[in-house]
Design a protein around this nucleic acid. Sequence first.
DNA 1: GTCTATAGTGCGATAGAC
DNA 2: GTCTATCGCACTATAGAC
Lengths: 225, 225
Amino acid sequence: MPDPAPRSPKAEQTRTAIAEAAMRLFRSEGYDRTTMRAIAREAGVSVGNAYYYFGSKEHLIQAFYDAIQADHAAAAEAALADERAFADRLRAVLLAWLEVARPHHAFAGQFFRNAADPSSPLSPFSAESAPAREASTAIFEQVVAGSDLKVAAGLRRELPGLLWLLQMGLVLFWVYDASPDQQRSRLLVERAVPVVDRLARLSRLPVVRGVVDDVVGLVGALRET
Amino acid sequence: MPDPAPRSPKAEQTRTAIAEAAMRLFRSEGYDRTTMRAIAREAGVSVGNAYYYFGSKEHLIQAFYDAIQADHAAAAEAALADERAFADRLRAVLLAWLEVARPHHAFAGQFFRNAADPSSPLSPFSAESAPAREASTAIFEQVVAGSDLKVAAGLRRELPGLLWLLQMGLVLFWVYDASPDQQRSRLLVERAVPVVDRLARLSRLPVVRGVVDDVVGLVGALRET
DNA sequence: GTCTATAGTGCGATAGAC
DNA sequence: GTCTATCGCACTATAGAC
């Protein structure tokens, strides 16, 4: 979260007023049905001023994004304090995300549409998202580091990144999850975590080593290219 | 590809004129920069008429989508005729998709953004996409059926669906692939296919059976819910 | 640098006449 | 089925106030 531009307190106040107004309206009306005019009105500023602080309606999503990220980091840390076993730690972190994100599920799809655009700064793979991506990966580094898990060295290095990818998969599933209260997403976590746990532990088995090396090599090759 | 509505020849003609005009303009100008007004003009109809046939600009993408699907099915069939080994068959089918999709990479991202919306009929998981999804899964059924691969029975049943999911992952990667001529996507195929091959063959090993059963159970549980 | 007010552009989508 | 006219929106432009 770089904040190199020292903004005046007044500017900061206006900025957050706009962001918070947007959040309120997004939550109550949904993204698409919230107009920039309404956001400006709700924040008590002019439309031009809203555009002065946020380059586009999309940019207002970033604030939301960051809030969820921060909430998840806090929730994950709290949850990790109680768990030692790798599977329990992973489950706790993933379920914490579902919990944090739950209130936003209704309009997450509308956000997601923007995030999916490869040219959008909101894309989880974009350069602008690098800080959020690293913060998230750091959580998974904690999941592994504080656990009893022993895996092959090559895999150990890639594991946090792979778990971040797993979480992206969960997010994708969750966005499409129309079940009441997103039960299916929780079911996915409950059943996928043991699989990951077993796979990770199997990684040291001689027969399995070949595949693991392939996967690690694959990830490495893609990183270099 | 159901076409149960018997449309009048004239209507059919207008409809395809609009769809083809859209394709031409999408290809030359990109999706976002092509306006409905321009499409209507190019097709020689009014804007209102274009909307009479296609509920939204998004709906015009479907034609594109279907064309790629059909091309891939044909290319895959041709490629499969030459290959026996599972890994070779899988590689051939995935590379065929990259080849078919290659000319469209530049604006695929703009399409993708719409496809990512869970409420969009273009979403690969939507009910409207079911025919395309099944057609695509059928290709992977062929990949497995015509090969030398032997896997556990439970996995065998789920394999085509899982391979379809793998291809969705490839599509995702490809959309974000900014390397020249999408080299990285081809690299991904070349290196991921052996992993899948080895994993599938390992599935019959006693130690690995537990994980495989977990995965199969997971997929089954999600399907039921 | 921060902000207002207003007018305007171009777009996706729609209404309603024919 | 097809049209013209129009709506509401994101976003821009401008001119100026503090």
